[in-house]
């Protein structure tokens, strides 16, 4: 094992995964508390179209296949945000309700992304690097390079620092947006900021968890952390820790047992953490359920 750990690639992958888990876990708390988990899932699925388009666009421009996160992540952000803004436009202009709008948009973006992916993989002459594009469906941490690590660290740090700087305002916006408007806060701009933070929390992890499973790395640590604390700061810290441990553990397991895909292993670990929390938390756990009589 120690010999295994000395492998530079493995260290990059495990460290990068922990970083991703920490960022996604922390930012996921807002998605969880604002009940936007499904919106997050739409962003994650829709980003496939952006990933494939970015890969293809880079190929058309440079003539070679480039799967660096510096290419992939901007594509994913654009597609994820586009899906949400289109949903908003559709629900605003027609009588289609939000859930239906989100469902349709997910299908369109993910479906088109899959179509483009398959087409690119069969196109002649073959584009180098295209075969491993599949990894973005369920995650593939082994391909992570130190360059990717920089990208993850950069946008992850930017997102977390922004979250900390705007802490009070984001908290009140999440808890009671109408009251925040009464205080005179720029509610719309803050909402957009929160949305962007959530999108970053998602796209940063696409490489290890994949578009299909990413939502669990975003929301499950938050749901698990919520069981243990009644304090938002502690919840964010705990969710971040759970996310980091599970993501790093998943990446390590899938590196040791090379047949295990990373995303599903990570999902299994966060699910384990979630189930354990829901069962065992002393104040909210199902095993300790007491009937509260208030006042």
């Amino acid at each position: 094992m120690s010999e295994f750990w000395s492998d530079y690639t493995v260290r990059v992958v495990v460290f990068g995964s922990a970083l991703i888990g920490a960022v996604s876990g922390a930012l996921g708390c807002y998605a969880y508390l604002r009940r936007q988990s499904l919106i997050g899932d739409v962003v994650a699925h829709s980003s496939l179209l952006g990933i494939v388009s970015a890969f293809w666009g880079a190929f058309l421009l440079t003539g070679s296949g480039n799967k660096s996160l510096w290419v992939i992540i901007p594509g994913a952000i654009v597609a994820g945000l586009a899906a949400l803004l289109l949903t908003r436009a559709v629900t605003g202009l027609t009588r289609i309700k939000e859930d239906a709008g989100l469902g349709v948009m997910l299908a369109i973006f993910f479906g088109t992304g899959m179509m483009l992916l398959r087409w690119l993989q069969r196109a002649q002459p073959p584009i180098p690097g295209r075969s491993s594009l599949d990894g973005y469906l369920f995650g593939m941490s082994a391909a992570m390079t130190s360059q990717d690590l920089w990208m993850i660290g950069l946008i992850g740090a930017a997102a977390v620092i922004t979250m900390l700087l705007f802490w009070s305002r984001l908290k009140i916006l999440t808890f009671d947006p109408e009251y925040a408007a009464g205080l005179g806060l720029p509610v719309r701009r803050l909402e957009l900021l929160l949305l962007c933070l959530m999108v970053i929390g998602i796209v940063v992890g696409l490489q290890i968890a994949g578009v299909v499973l990413m939502i669990s790395l975003l929301v499950a640590p938050a749901a698990a952390a919520r069981q243990w604390t009644h304090h938002l700061g502690k919840m964010v810290g705990l969710a971040s820790t759970i996310g980091a441990i599970c993501a790093a553990g998943g990446a390590l397991l899938s590196a040791v047992f090379s047949h295990l895909p990373t995303g599903p292993v990570i999902v299994a670990l966060v699910t384990l953490a979630f189930v354990a929390s829901v069962l065992c938390s002393p104040s909210r756990g199902l095993l300790f359920r007491r009937r509260f009589v208030v006042d």
């Binding site: 009140i172 009671d176 009464g182 205080l183």
Partner: peptide, 28 residues
């Protein structure tokens, strides 16, 4: 600025915060 008191049902009372923190939101 307006001191708004919403209907009680307008917020999620399971939000992870204490009474003190909720009241302090008024200073934000």
């Amino acid at each position: 600025a307006i001191g708004y008191v919403p209907q009680r049902s307008a917020v999620d009372w399971d939000f992870p915060t204490t009474v003190f923190d909720l009241v302090m939101m008024g200073t934000y």
